[in-house]
Computed example of a mutant assay.
Amino acid sequence: MALIQCPSCNKRISDKAKTCSHCDFVLAGRSSEDLQREQARAVQRRKDKLLSQSMLALLIAIAAFAYTFLEQPHPDAWQAQVSYGLIVVGLVWFVINRVRIVFLKRGR
């Protein structure tokens, strides 16, 4: 009995299993072409999810920057500290997601 990767969720399952115990993907009766197609769909879903998270992170950073630029709170005020923190968190989250997308593309 060997462990293989589920084409849908990419988790390790038994090669004797008829369905994936993690995502309930049916493996029995599928051709290798169907399994490859499902694996390509799973990669595309992960890429879309990362792109959505990346855009959300960028939106947070831009909104915080716009608030800081337009309102110009005093640097010691809590509003300024929160907006600076959101800018940093949004940009770091954006960069991390972009790196994850690059690794996902290279993983093919």
Rank of each mutant, 00 (worst) to 15 (best):
L58H: 08
A77M: 00
R106H: 13
N97R: 10
C6F: 01
L91E: 05
A2P: 06
F25I: 02
G90K: 10
E38R: 12
C23V: 08
S54P: 00
R41V: 08
I96A: 14
I62M: 14
L91T: 11
E33Y: 03
A66P: 00
V43D: 07
V89R: 04
I13Q: 03
Q72N: 02
L104Y: 03
A17D: 10
V88K: 09
K49H: 09
G85C: 05
G90S: 06
D24L: 11
G107V: 00
A64D: 06
A17Q: 07
K18H: 12
L56E: 15
V26M: 03
S21R: 12
V43E: 12
W93N: 14
E38V: 14
I96L: 15
W78D: 06
A17V: 01
A28H: 09
R30N: 01
A42N: 07
G29N: 02
C9P: 04
S21V: 10
V99N: 08
R98W: 09
V92R: 02
R108Q: 13
D76V: 01
F103K: 15
T68I: 01
S31N: 07
W78E: 08
S21T: 08
Q5G: 01
V89C: 05
A42G: 11
I60R: 13
K47Q: 11
R106L: 12
T19M: 09
K16P: 00
I101A: 05
A40I: 12
V102K: 15
R12E: 10
A2W: 10
R106D: 04
W93S: 15
C9G: 01
R30I: 01
L86N: 10
A63L: 14
K18S: 11
V26E: 04
S32Q: 13
K18T: 10
A63S: 13
Q36W: 04
I96Y: 12
L35C: 01
H74T: 00
V88H: 09
A61P: 04
F103Q: 14
A64S: 12
R106S: 14
V43H: 15
H74A: 11
H74I: 01
T68F: 09
A66W: 05
C23H: 03
A61N: 02
S52K: 13
L56H: 06
L3I: 06
I87Y: 04
M1Q: 11
A2C: 00
E33R: 13
R37D: 05
Q53P: 00
L51F: 08
D76G: 06
R106C: 02
T68D: 11
E38M: 13
T19P: 00
L58A: 15
